[in-house]
Design a protein around this nucleic acid. Sequence first.
DNA 1: CGTGTCACG
DNA 2: ACGTACGTGACACGG
Length: 545
Amino acid sequence: MFGARAEGQMEAREALALLRPMLEDRSILKIGHNVKYDTGILLRHGIALAPIDDTLLISYALDGARDNGLEKLADSWLGLKGVAITELIGTGKAQKTFAEVPLADAARYAAEDTDLTLRLWLVLKPRLSGENMTTLYETEERPLSPVLARMEARGISVDRAILARLTGDFTQRAAALEAEAHELAGERFNLGSPRQLGEILFGRMGLPGGTKTKTGQWSTTASALEDLAEKEGVPLAKVIVDWRQLTKLIGTYTGALPDYINPRTGRVHTSYNQHSVLTGRLSSNEPNLQNIPVRTEDGRKIRTAFVSAPGRVLISADYSQIELRVLAHIADIQALKDAFEEGLDIHAMTASEMFGVPIAGMPSEVRRRAKAINFGIIYGISAFGLANQLGIARSEAGEYIKTYFRRFPGIQDYMAEQRRLVKAQGFVSTIFGRKIAFPNANTSHAAERAFIERASINAPIQGSAADIIRRAMIRMEPALETAGVKADMLLQVHDELIFEVDAGAEEAAMPVIARTMEGAALPAVNLTVPLKVDAHAANNWDEAH
DNA sequence: CGTGTCACG
DNA sequence: ACGTACGTGACACGG
């Protein structure tokens, strides 16, 4: 609330000077709803707010990723139907600053926001201890919020000139592909319209093998188009795939990112959402910096535009195979744990165990299949999904799964246990006690139930890994400080942290970062498998990764 | 504003 | 007989 006022008021400086002693006095009880917002604004005015109770995060710890907005919670917990305080200031992109709304509206908003937050806190706070969620909230949610606020405030430097050059290159190539597509199709059409494309391929050209989406449209996904290109020798299909990739890169990245460069800081500042993912992961938006391309050569070029400030370098530190390690721990699979202990290539080891092929000289296709199976296990495997992924028959995929379960019976036990738990209690848990709710676990709708079963197999794995990196982030600043290393944490991408340090400090920083990440489960959980972090330094994200 | 598609872990 | 690989966010299309 103070933050919002400070942002909008002409006399913000004086107001903040008055408020500062109170804001910084730890003996005064302070609470808020979506505190990261206020923390961020106060940060811009040089006021560091200690971690304080946040009814948004309390609600997330208790009830997960539902609508945890103040108005919705006021309705659910205070019985205040139809409270609509945000209409006074707008929401999202239409949100106004306090300077733009009449004083009476601002005052009413401030009063209602404050009143509702306090009343909500009085209801929600006791539920934490009642439901054994105090530790999770106090060790993972509340302290992470100011860490994220600082990362958002720091932003990352993005090189406009590199993006402009890439936009030019991609645009030229896309234009050439578009002309080629019109030539091959024998007519001009909008390549960006899946409906028009499907009609041309499966309607007018009468190509076989088309499948329909749930709304009856022809499906034109990349995998469908690649099938057409390979099995039917349709050159148009490949052209479309390439055109789509280039226009995707332009539209979402090279063309769009410059608009996010803040004119005051010259950097790009994402926002992290701490309460929107049901497994406990973060999400990133405006812009999303958790889905910057990496898998293709052209895509990777975009990462070269994420650069260190002059005189500084970027460090990327990422957990190696964290989800498979977490699975090995939770399901207690000795063979997997041994493999990680010995530093083996885990996919090759899986292939070797399943197919009896020695790791030395293993054909890449054999390893590729084992890798797909390992991913499938994490996702709550189905023969259909695995068959789809590998382009093999469902029966063959089913055989692979049977073989895998025979070799690693503990995995099957783990899966059965999560299915049982979700039906018995309506939630499953991470190793740190985060609950992931599935209220419809006992639905009579078979497909939905199967979906929930797969999700509840995945959730403890994905969620425990998310908990681990959150714990690492919370400890990172004190750890660096203790070690006497100045390093700024900028980004989180699920299993990776990106830092900026003064050139020359990287060799000191990297071991501190890696050891902090590797030890992040302790002391709450003593993992029975080692965590491994790889760290690299360079002047841009592509080379650091 | 829902749908399809595709970028990431 | 179902109808699916887990979790997100952004963009273009087209009603």
